[in-house]
Structures are given as C-alpha cells and as structure tokens.
Design a protein around this nucleic acid. Structure first.
Lengths: 231, 231
DNA sequence: GCACTCGATATTGTCAACAATAAGTCCGTA
DNA sequence: TACGGACTTATTGTTGACAATATCGAGTGC
C-alpha cells in the first residue's frame, strides 16, 4: 500500500484479478519470463511482498503455482530460486516439443475445418507482409512464430496438450531466450517450413503434417545446439 | 493435534517430511489417486485442516501444488474440487502419452547400455513368472505394467519427460482407473508387445522402438475407447 | 404453489504476529 | 592469517484472527 515506488508495476498483465495470489502469480511469471527476475536468483518473500504490496500468505501461494509451472525451484527452509535452464535442459524441452507439436499438428490436420485453414493462411500471409515490410529479421522476435504454433495447438482440440505446451514449456523456452539473449535467426527457412505445414493440414494429410512439424522443430533444435556449440 | 480421530491416517506415505505443506501435499495426492477423495468432490479447507491437524496456511499451499499437478481445480472464492476426468479428457491424455512415451522409447534405445537392457529383461521375466504363478490377470493390477514404462522413461535420460509423465499424467490416469473402476484386461497381448519393445531397444533400433511403443499405447487407448463405448 | 429477497451461516481470502531454521558477523584461538 | 564457534540478523514456516464472498434457508409477496 505504502511502497508503490519504482518497481511495483512489473507488468501490465491482469492488474485486476479476483484474488491477490492469482494476480501476483501472473505478475511474477511475466517478470521471470521477461528476464526482470534473473534466472538462478533468489525469490525473496519479504522483498516481493513489499514490492507488490501484499502479505506473504498469497505471495507464497503464488510461488507454489510458479513451482507447478517449473519456473521456480523451492528448497525447504531455504526458499525459492528462479529456474535457470542449462544447455541440456533446453534440449530436453525441445525433444518434448518435437513429440508434442508433431502430435498437435496431426490432430489439427485431422480436425481442422476449411475455416480453420483459412485462419492459418491469414496468419502466415500477415506475417509474410510483416517480413517484407520490416526486412525479415523481426519475424521471430515479434513472436509471429509462436502465434503460428499456438494456433495449430489450439486447432488440435486437445486442451491438455495446449496447457502443457503453452502454459508450461513455452514459458520456459521464452525464459531461455532471454537468459542467453539468443536471437533465433533462420526466418526464411522456418517460414517456408510453415507454409509446407499448412499445405499438409489443408490437404488433410495428417501423417505428413506431423512429420513436417517434427522436422521443423528438430531443425530449430539443431540450430540451437550449433549455436550453443559456437559460444 | 486433538482430533486425530478416525480419518486422520489417510495414507502412509511420508509422514515425516520437512515441511507441513509438502507433507500434506503428498498425503492428499495419494488420497486423491487412491480414490479416497472422490473425483468432483469439494476440497473443504476447514475440514482438511482439522483432519490433518495443520492450519489453513500450509494446507492452501498444498492445494496450490495439487492445482499444479492438475489434480484439483480451483475456482476463486468458491474453492477447489478434485478433478474428474471424462471420456474425452482421458483420451487426450492417452494421445499425449502416445507421443511422449514413443519419444522416451526412442531415447532409451539410443542411450541404453547393455546393463540397462539387462534390467529391462529382468523386469519382464520377473513379471512373466508372476503372471504364470498368479494366472495372468494380475499383471496390470499390480502395476507391473507401469514399472516397465517407468523404467523406460528413466532410461530415456530426459528428466523433464520423466516429470511430465510420471509426476503428472500417470497420477491422472491412475485416478481415472479408480474413478471408473476399470480393470485393464489385455495382459498377454500387452506382454508380448513389451517383449518386442525390449528387443528393439536391445538392438539399438530407436525408430522401431519408438514405433512399437506408440502402437502399444495406441492399442491401450483403443481398448479403453471400446470399453467406454460398451458402458 | 412459486419466485424472490433478505438474513444467517459457512467457506474462502488476507493479514500480521510468532516460531523455527538458515545465513551472516564478530570474536577468539591456534 | 586461517579456522571455528557463539551471537545476531534475516528469511522461511506456521498459526490464529479478521474481512470478504458465497451458500443455504426462511420468510414474504404474488
């Protein structure tokens, strides 16, 4: 209440939630994903409770939710630390993504209506225009890539799949990008792959769609590994 | 402290944890998975805090962890309810299992040492003896099936994969079995499939291992669907 | 008899204080 | 100077009380 000072407005997301715990959960989560809370650092309860102007009760509930999302690690009697992903852990996540998004793509191809396909096409052409007007490099950085993947996962119709990918793994990957300040840079290639994937979905070729998505993410993984090897 | 009466000992798991919240989290989780807390029912905080002899603070943290495992659903200002899986939600989980365990199997085939393969063989032969001595039907019910899958996931070496499958999805499936009191009944067929999988892993044929595992779980899914259609 | 409102009760959300554990500091000794 | 131990401080764990919201039931009007 009193110390609304400088760092209180960490993010704009959902300032008016129904409960303080959920509210501050969202705020801290975006703070972590944006890199404002640096990976590996300690999550100090008294400090955060002052910062957000709430008591430690709901704050601890929020931290427990963050633990569930695997964004912090809690050690009993010591406290929580913001997760820090190393090289192999990131590769692990990409392996899982490969399997799950391949599945999502197959399901999407099976279930998608012409209207859905139209939305996918629209998304791609919108991104294409953006690329042309902004000289290409911003496709990934503006997360147009993620938009595309989000939509396919939604089209899969598997709600739990959406939760695992979009509510858990993607946040972790976003964190990693901030952590290593890595700029994914293979826009035109990825863009071509995206078009192939939509083609397969439109043709209702589920197996091909799954294969293409798997290869798409596998390529991203290999790019990441090479990038890590260089550094 | 005072009301240790009848329903206090809900489970035997981990009575001496380091913190009350973690302790009661484990207890409630097993209670849910065992069906002692029936799916869909309300999670009453005052009642549970009396039952476990703790205050509502750590209890609420435990509930938030359960929310993270997707074992309860929390509605603001209303409370938590034990999750209840319907038919389609269960199929969703099986779809995810199919993708993830297929991945696990491929990784296991790539990384497994001869010693690992030996352990797998031992597990299978041990189960085989058990089947012969107990007339078959108990293989699944004693969770020998899960032992097998657990071991392969461990051999995959992907820690996050292990977490997602063994710490989250499996608990949900176990809950569903209790909920519908369904007894998986295709022991000899599944057993044959298990043997094939180990063969592939031993031969370092990662693609085949992945394929077989995917089919193995796909069969289980189809069996489940048929079973549900009958009822 | 039915629907609606209002009040009583129970449950959830939040807080501030206390207890227990860990971390840091200062001091003495070898 | 380096090491170890007691003391101090800070942080986490836990509790009970209070506030806010939702649920249930009785009573009233139609």
């Amino acid at each position: 209440m009193k110390t609304e000072s400088l760092s209180n407005r960490v993010s704009k997301t959902s300032s008016a939630s129904t409960t303080l715990a959920d509210n501050v959960f969202n705020q801290i989560r975006t703070a972590i994903v944006k890199g404002e809370l640096i990976p590996g650092s300690k999550v100090n309860e008294p400090q955060l409770s002052r910062q957000y102007g709430i008591s430690r009760g709901p704050l601890r509930e929020a931290i427990r939710r963050l633990e569930g999302c695997k964004l912090v690690e809690i050690t009993p009697h010591i406290g929580a630390n913001v997760i820090s992903l190393n090289r192999s852990q990131t590769i692990e996540i990409y392996e899982i993504r490969e399997a799950l998004e391949s599945l999502a793509c197959r399901l999407a191809a099976e279930k998608s209506t012409p209207k859905d396909c139209h939305k996918l096409r629209e998304l791609l052409t919108a991104h294409e225009k953006q690329i042309q007007s902004e000289n290409g490099q911003l496709y990934y950085q503006k997360e147009g890539d993620l938009d595309f993947h989000y939509l396919i996962i939604q089209l899969s119709g598997n709600a739990r799949l959406f939760t695992i990918l979009c509510e858990e793994l993607y946040h972790l990957l976003r964190l990693y990008r901030v952590q290593t300040s890595s700029k994914p840079s293979r826009p035109e290639r990825a863009f071509h792959e995206h078009h192939q994937i939509v083609d397969a979905i439109e043709n209702k070729d589920a197996e091909l769609a799954a294969l293409l998505m798997r290869r798409h993410i596998s390529n991203a993984r290999k790019t990441l590994i090479n990038q890590l090897d260089i550094e």
